[in-house]
């Protein structure tokens, strides 16, 4: 279980996050919504231990992440960027092996055949074992995203933090990746992702957290909180909500 309590962060005198508290439990897919500059990325960086919060704390199963060693933290919590564009071309298997780094130690500096087997197993689990020897930089965006997820799983972390994981993908790949994430959540992973797509969040998220100007502004099950008023408050646009498929999906049409 991941717990964020009373988290505040400022860049200089500009307060970016104010008193943020929430929890994410095992098996939950949490979606963070908010306008550009609302503080989502800063929040994620604090959750990953890349930034040290001014006040408050982030803990995993009761252990404060700022007190952990980097490798220990990486075994608890993994980051999946929107897109990784390495300068040098690495094979898919090498990318996944990089995720194994926090599991190596002093007596075992380089990944060996044991790690390789694990990496192949994870690729297999993601359904992309046939890509193992391919050049990562030459894959499609959707395949790359699956490799990055495999890399995160290789860390052994059970909490996955994703910054707009599907925003640069085409429609089909967005759905594929989201479905895969949903499956991972049902296997017991905790997934926290940010999104700019409320309609997608409604379909896939178990819970939605809305951030506005660095504060949590609403939080709850998508069905309970996502309506015309929320979209207006969050993004400042007037919409009309249309519910489809017995409220399996909600669409927001812009009012002229």
């Amino acid at each position: 279980m991941m717990k964020v309590s009373g988290l505040s962060f400022s860049y200089g005198s500009k307060e970016v996050l104010h008193n943020i508290s929430f929890e994410a439990v095992s098996g939950e897919l949490l979606c963070v919504l908010g306008h550009n500059g609302a503080g989502k990325t800063t929040l994620f960086r604090c959750m990953l231990g890349l930034l040290k919060p001014e006040n408050g704390s982030v803990s995993i199963d009761g252990a404060d992440i700022t007190a952990m060693k980097p490798a220990e933290r990486a075994r608890c919590i993994a980051y999946i960027p929107q897109a990784a564009r390495p300068v040098f071309a690495y094979s898919v298997i090498d990318m996944v092996l990089m995720g194994m780094t926090p599991r190596l130690d002093r007596g075992h500096l380089n990944p060996g055949s044991e790690e390789r087997k694990t990496a192949i197993r994870i690729l297999d689990q993601m359904g992309i074992a046939d890509l193992a020897e391919r050049d990562y930089t030459k894959l499609s965006g959707g395949e790359q995203q699956l490799v990055l997820i495999a890399r995160a799983l290789a860390q052994g972390a059970e909490t996955l933090i994703m910054d707009e994981p599907t925003s640069s993908l085409d429609y089909g790949n967005q759905m594929k990746v989201q479905r895969r994430l949903k499956e991972l959540a049902s296997e017991g992973y905790t997934i926290v992702q940010s999104s700019h797509n409320p309609e997608q969040a409604f379909v896939f998220a178990d819970r939605v957290i809305c951030i506005k100007d660095g504060r949590i502004f609403r939080e709850g099950k998508p069905r309970d909180i996502m309506d015309e008023q929320l979209i207006k408050d969050l993004y400042g646009i007037d919409v009309e909500m249309i519910s489809g498929g017995e409220d399996k999906a909600r669409f927001f049409l812009i009012r002229e």
Partner: peptide, 23 residues
């Protein structure tokens, strides 16, 4: 030569390398 695996991880970028537990 001892650090060379970690140098691999550095090449993918600072933030990602940190999130993978590299100092």
């Amino acid at each position: 030569l001892l650090l060379r695996w970690k140098i691999n991880v550095l090449t993918v970028g600072e933030e990602e390398a940190s999130s993978m537990g590299v100092k």
